[in-house]
Amino acid sequence: MGRHGALLVAAALTSATAAASPLDVAFPRTDAFDFEAPAAGTYALPVIRPAADGTVLDEQGRRVTLHDAMDGKLVLLSFIYTRCADPDGCPLATAVLYDILFFSEQDRAIADNLRLVSLSFDPGHDTPEIMAGFRGAEPKTPVHRCDWAYLTTPSEAALRPLLDGYDQVVRKRYDDAGRFRGMFAHQLRVYLIDRHKRVRNIYGLGFLDPRLLIADVRTLLMEEQRQGRR
């Protein structure tokens, strides 16, 4: 929460200059990411793999495909489960997506063209209602920022091809009596997906610097402009 608070304060204090140099202002260099972030568009993001598709449930419980839920936008996809209590696990990924969400309030191109997607790998617990409740409170005054879809799957059978397709490792944890403990061993991953449904970057711990995510999103937007697709 402190991280978000710091971001909001920084954004508020610097709103006049944010458009000119938002990254340096909102996300300072830290001990964990002790480097100058690369400038967007100065590097290439190779295609890593096709972004897998499958059946998911939206917050209203409607069956849609994951690709449809991407809504024709660039996507930052994060596999999570809402009961995760490891501060270096799902909460960290969600915190970074909040960083991007708040940042998008001051960057119209990102607000218009990026969608955040949190997809649960715990369908037994994370129902559409739970996922809807996981969504934070909306601002009282509507603000223009990127969309955020909170998705789950109708079953573990529907989930499996998605996990396999993204090479997302998830394993249920059991107690000595063989009972599921409601916890998962999992690998923290966030995926950047382009409009052609291709994975263009994969972030784990050590890479979840919002400056890198924003630079990568902007790099894809610039690539689209060069290719005349936007």
Partner: peptide
């Protein structure tokens, strides 16, 4: 704000088994 290292670069895998690092 938590110490940056508690983000656990070394805890790249959220396993809590006896032999796996969980946080540095």
């Amino acid at each position: 704000m938590r110490h940056p290292m508690s983000r656990g670069l070394l805890a790249a895998f959220v396993f809590a088994g006896a032999v796996a690092v969980t946080a540095a």
